[in-house]
Design a protein around this nucleic acid. Structure first.
Length: 271
DNA sequence: TAGGCCATCTGGTCCT
DNA sequence: AGGACCAGATGGCCTA
C-alpha cells in the first residue's frame, strides 16, 4: 500500500481515501459482503465510526451507491444477486488464472512434489521469463553450432571445447545431466548468462533474486527427475552423444551463490 | 510478531 | 448492457 502511493495511476478512478471510505460505508450499510462473503467479516462493528447513521443517512448513502441498475429501482435482493453473480465470475476468473499458473509451474524446470512448496506466483512468472530467455539462448547457440558444423564442410571442430565455451552456459540447460548430480546448481531463476545486459538489469530479473526460495525444492528434489524435470533431456546426452560442453565437467562459478543468495527462500522454505 | 503470500470482495474502466 | 479485466482493500494462513 505504501509503495503504491508513489505510483502514478493511469486510472482516473483510482480509489482514494473517500472512495474507499464510501466503499466500506456501503458495505456496512447494506451488508453486502456480510451476506456474500464467507471469508471476510464486514460487520459494522468493525467500523465504529459508522454506527450512528440515521435512516436518512442510510438512504442517501444508498442513493449514492446507486449504480445504473440501482437507479432502475432494483430491489436489495436483486442487487445482492447481481453482486453474488459478479463475485462468482471474479472467483472463477481468478481460479482459471491460478489453473493456468499451475500449468506454468508444471512445465517449469523445477522440483515438483507433495513435499515441495509450490512457487509463488511472482516467482513462477519470473522463473518462466528467465527460462524462456535461457531456452532462446540455447536455441540460438544450437543454430550457431549446427551452421558451424555443416556450414564449414562438416568439420567436427564445431564440437570442440572452444566452441562449447562460447555457449550460453551461464544458465541451466534443461535436462542437463549436471542437474541431478548437483541439485540446485543450475537454476533458471538465475538470469540467463548470455542475455543482454539490459535484460539482466531489468527489474524483473533483479526481482527474482529477492524471491524467497523453497527449501523443499533443494531438500527433496523429485526422484529421477531433478530440478529440471523428467521431461527434459540434454541435447547431447539424449542423442547418445557425449555432452561437449565444459559445464558438464566443471560446475559454473556462480553455483553456490545462486541457491543461497539469489534464491534465499529455496534454502529455507518447505511445506 | 512481522512479513509474505493468497483468496476474496468490490468498484471502476474498457470492450463487444 | 453485460462481461472481462484490473487494482485496491482486507483478512487468513504460514513461516522465520
Amino acid at each position: 500500500m505504501d509503495s503504491d502511493t508513489s505510483r502514478v495511476s493511469s486510472r482516473p478512478s483510482s480509489p482514494e481515501v473517500d472512495d474507499i471510505f464510501m466503499s466500506t460505508l456501503k458495505k456496512s450499510v447494506h451488508g453486502f459482503s456480510a451476506a456474500v462473503s464467507s471469508t471476510q467479516s464486514d460487520s459494522p462493528s468493525e467500523l465504529p465510526g459508522l454506527r450512528g447513521l440515521s435512516a436518512s443517512d442510510e438512504e442517501s448513502l444508498a442513493l449514492r451507491m446507486a449504480s445504473k441498475k440501482d437507479r432502475k429501482l432494483l430491489s436489495e435482493n436483486e442487487l445482492q444477486a447481481i453482486r453474488l453473480k459478479i463475485n462468482s465470475r471474479e472467483r472463477k476468473r481468478m481460479h482459471d488464472l491460478n489453473v493456468a499458473m499451475d500449468g506454468l509451474r508444471e512445465v517449469m524446470p523445477y522440483a515438483h512434489g507433495p513435499s515441495v512448496r509450490k512457487l509463488s506466483k511472482i516467482a513462477t512468472l519470473l522463473l518462466a521469463r528467465n527460462y524462456i530467455l535461457m531456452l532462446s539462448n540455447s536455441l540460438e547457440e544450437m543454430k550457431r553450432l549446427v551452421s558451424e558444423i555443416y556450414g564449414s564442410g562438416g568439420h567436427h571442430g564445431g564440437f570442440h571445447p572452444a566452441a562449447c565455451g562460447t555457449m550460453a552456459h551461464a544458465g541451466p540447460v534443461p535436462g542437463h545431466p549436471a542437474a541431478p548430480s548437483h541439485p540446485a546448481v543450475h537454476h533458471p531463476l538465475l538470469p540467463p548468462p548470455a542475455v543482454s545486459t539490459s535484460s539482466l538489469s531489468a527489474p524483473g530479473i533483479s526481482a527474482v533474486t529477492s524471491v524467497r526460495p523453497h527449501h523443499g525444492l533443494l531438500k527433496a528434489p523429485t526422484a529421477g527427475a531433478g530440478p529440471l524435470g523428467s521431461s527434459f533431456q540434454h541435447w547431447g546426452v539424449g542423442a547418445g552423444m557425449p555432452c561437449p560442453c565444459s559445464m558438464c565437467q566443471v560446475p559454473p562459478p556462480h553455483v553456490s551463490s545462486m541457491s543461497s543468495v539469489a534464491m534465499p527462500r529455496l534454502a529455507g522454505d518447505s511445506k
